[in-house]
Nucleic acid binder design. Structure first.
Lengths: 143, 143
DNA sequence: AAAAAAGGTTGTATAATACAATTACATTAT
DNA sequence: ATAATGTAATTGTATTATACAACCTTTTTT
């Protein structure tokens, strides 16, 4: 692999992550973790902490606490599973959906302001390459 | 801005950050913060915590602790500033440079494995677009 | 039925972070 | 030239994200 591209990508990815994480802390009412969890619950439907933890590659205890925090804010509901009394399903509430959508919109707005001067093609390519990157990571899950 | 691209970018950026942060935790001996700080000290030369905090848009106290942790590991040295007895310069040590380079190489290796099948052009474009993104964020620092 | 496995929660610990208080020195204003 | 103000840095305290280990309860396996 071309070493210049590699260096550039490494450097810019590191910076980009730092910037975005900082920006989110400053701007979003929902924490990163909560946002991702709500988004997952909305897109994949109700799920227990184990499944959620697997999807996100996080420890079950981490999800357990995050879900409990979202439940306390009434963004999700914990529904007992009648078929297995050990387990629960978390489902996103209407309030949770509303909060998620508001956060998503703020994220969109920020992105839009940052990339407003980009050409359609650049925007399209950026999305496509980010997606490609993620797909390749999924194929190499230990990386 | 095209809404499809926007959605895609938002979604993929969120995922990408999550993945990379997790991967770093699993793989790197140096923490993210330490890595970034060492990299900055190497590229910009000795600096005090205030300057470092400004560059990284972090609180001075955060940098103070990170620098102290790096100092404890002998990756940096704290040199008093003779012109101002309140302040210090942190400089990266040879040991710090070695540790930084080893970490960087591991990061490169991971990236390379993920993107080994990409065309030269895709790699080049990805780097270029990431850089462009970062440059545009810098122009909108409050975002 | 006893043993093992599985879903979840809770205790404890660490890292990154911010804000507030504090210390020690430097600069400015009277 | 001294008092007031400002500045560089550290330290106390708090929060969030995270993991691992211990544990409880229920289910599955032997």
């Amino acid at each position: 692999m071309n070493n210049k591209s590699l260096e550039l990508i490494e450097q810019e990815l590191t910076d980009l992550i730092r910037r975005i994480v900082i920006s989110e802390k400053r701007n979003d009412s929902l924490e990163r973790s909560g946002y991702i969890l709500l988004r997952l619950l909305l897109s994949h439907g109700p799920a227990g902490v184990k499944q959620l933890a697997e999807k996100l590659q996080l420890d079950i205890s981490t999800i357990s606490r995050q879900a409990a925090a979202l439940e306390a804010k009434k963004y999700v509901e914990r529904v007992p599973n009648p078929a297995d009394k050990r387990s629960y399903y978390y489902t996103i509430t209407d309030k949770g959906i509303k909060e998620l959508e508001e956060n998503k919109q703020r994220r969109f707005d920020r992105l839009e302001r940052i990339m407003e001067s980009w050409s359609e093609e650049e925007q399209y390519n950026f999305g496509k390459l980010l997606k490609k990157y993620n797909e390749h990571v999924k194929e190499n899950p230990k990386r």
